[in-house]
Structures are given as C-alpha cells and as structure tokens.
Computed example of a mutant assay.
Amino acid sequence: MKVAIIGGTGFVGANITQRLVTAGHVPRLLVRPGSESKVPQPESCEIVHGDVGDLSALENCLTGVDAAIYLIGILREFPAQGITFEALQHQGVLDTIVAAQKLGVDRFLLMSANGVHAEGTAYQRTKYQAEQALKASSLRWTIFRPSVIFGDPEGRMEFCSQLKKDIIDSPMPAPLFYAGILPTDAGGFELAPVSVSDVADAFVLALSEPRTESQTYSLCGPERLSWKAILTTIAAAAGKTKLMLPAPVAAIRATAAVLDRFSWFPISRDQIKMLMEGNVCSENDSFARLGLTPTRFGVDQLDYL
C-alpha cells in the first residue's frame, strides 16, 4: 500500500513512517525544503517537496496513493511567523480532505489529541474542528486521540526530554502546580503517557483493518500518573533526584501572559490551562479494541534520557 503522510518528519510521523516500511508499505512524505535529513529510511520512501499550505504540492503528495495520514500538530502558535493552530491543525486538514476526495483517496487517518472539544483552547478547538470536518466528509476515516506521547525523540521534540531540559536539568526546584490559594494536592493532576511505538502501531494496524473505519480511539497509557510522579520518574531515568515545591498556577499564568509571545519562554497560558485539566482517557479500552497492549510508563522505558 502506498500511503501519503502529511507531517511525516516529526516525532510521531517518523515512527509511523518506519512502521509502515517494516510492514511493507511505501510512505510518500510531504517534506518542506531543507527538512530532507529528517526523513527516516529515505531509501524506502517517496518524497514530495512542499508545505501543507501549497495546494499543488499537497495534491502531488496524494496522487496515486491508497491512503492519507494527517499528523501535523503544534503546541504553540506564533502568528507573526505564520505558525497558527488554524492554518496547521484545521485548514491543513480541510485542504487535505478536499485533495483526497478530488483524487479518489478514500482512506484517511487523522491524529487529533485527547481532551479536544469545541469550547477549549485554540489548540483544542482547531483539532476538534478538524475531526468534525473529517467525519462530515465522504472518506473512510479513523481518528486517533493520544494523550501525552513519550519515546526516543531522535533529535525531535518529545514530552519527557522537554521536561528534562526545562525542569529536571534546571537549577530551580521543579514546580508542583496547584490552583487556588492553598497548595492542596500540588502536582496531583493526572496524565496518561502513551508510548510513541504504541501510537505508531495503532495507525499502521488501522490501514489494514476495516473494523477501525468510522471509529475514534483515545490512546492513553495503562496508568494514570500524577504530575509529581511523572517528574519523579523522569528525574530517576536521568539519574537525578529533584527538589519539588508547590507553585501557584495563577502566578505562572500571569508571567506567561506577558512572556508567552516569545518562543524562548517555555510555556504558554493555554498550555498551562490544558496541563491543569489533566490528560487521561474517560474510556480506556481503545488499545483493547485494537487488539494491542499499551506500554507502561517507567524508568526502563526512558533510557533515552
């Protein structure tokens, strides 16, 4: 099977590309000029140069393929640089849907995110709008909603390595965020980290399984872990111990309100909001429905740190 991948040079995309090659498929990647070195196993891939905003390049990428996978997602937007949630997480999906329908590519897999909803942050809203557009199309669709994803980044951005860099390696104490006035349950909000290998397996499986069509899968790891437990595990994997102190989230938000327009500031107001919401699956049977067993989050899985 020949599979077009939009977003194939990123962290998740590289893992899916490698899984596709292993499974005997031929990935065709839309690659921005200058990013050719990010293509995994380039000898086994087809490359179309261009950006998701270039409709002709998008159509070239989708011409003659059997399925399309859309993976582009950003955690922060910088409108002055043309990097926006609307352009990359919504309009890009709309354009890919139109191109797929025009070219007769009727199988479409979309990576959304756990916790998206119509009234959420700009990140959540645009992901949700993309889901709705795909569901309203004539395509045979499958949507995946991963929680925070961990795994060897191989030089790319990844959840645990980013936390190690920004928090564990910092000389400052690790912040245990809490809402309100008193530090009750500081750092107690929960996430369900999911392995990038498991996410990649789910995507590749869906290509050959008709039962996954018209289905949405929330992909969470097998455990709900507190923010404090996750930081403790990352520190242990890095061979460190880390002082952790309660941190009022209101103060962090106030600082971000002034500084999050700068790329060097590590977190935005919306990211803080989503973090405090937690990120666990309300229904945790997706891997069972797929016939897969998710990987536990622990020190042994973080040796890349």
Rank of each mutant, 00 (worst) to 15 (best):
G73R: 00
L302T: 02
A23T: 05
A57C: 11
D300T: 13
D300Y: 04
A14D: 09
G92I: 03
K2R: 14
L75Q: 05
F108W: 07
G104W: 03
T22C: 12
R107S: 07
S44T: 02
Y178R: 06
G92D: 08
G50K: 08
L207K: 04
T184F: 14
R32F: 12
T126G: 03
L182S: 12
G24K: 02
P266Q: 11
P193V: 03
C61V: 15
L292Q: 03
I181P: 00
M274A: 12
D54R: 12
S197M: 04
V39H: 02
A202K: 08
A136G: 10
G221S: 03
L243Y: 01
G34D: 01
K242N: 09
A67Q: 03
N114E: 09
I74R: 01
I74T: 07
E59C: 11
E158C: 08
G8S: 11
I83N: 05
M274Y: 04
L205Q: 08
D270L: 07
M172K: 10
R211M: 09
L205P: 01
G221V: 06
L275G: 06
S161N: 10
G239Y: 09
S286R: 03
K127A: 13
A257E: 14
Q89S: 09
L20E: 03
A186K: 01
S37R: 15
T121S: 15
V12T: 11
S112C: 09
L207E: 07
N15P: 00
P40R: 07
K228M: 10
A235I: 11
A257Q: 14
R28F: 06
I234Y: 05
V280G: 07
S44V: 00
I252R: 00
A236V: 00
I149C: 08
C45V: 11
D66N: 14
A238D: 10
A4Y: 05
Y123M: 09
Q81K: 15
R224Q: 13
V65K: 00
E36I: 11
K164Y: 15
I74W: 06
K135R: 15
F108R: 00
A192G: 05
T142A: 07
Q124H: 09
K164L: 15
P42E: 08
G7I: 12
H90Y: 13
L71H: 08
F108T: 02
A186E: 05
F144M: 10
I47V: 15
L305M: 10
D66E: 14
S137K: 01
L207P: 11
A14N: 13
R296T: 14
D198G: 12
T22M: 13
Y304H: 11
V21D: 02
N15Y: 13
C220Y: 07
Q81H: 12
V299F: 12
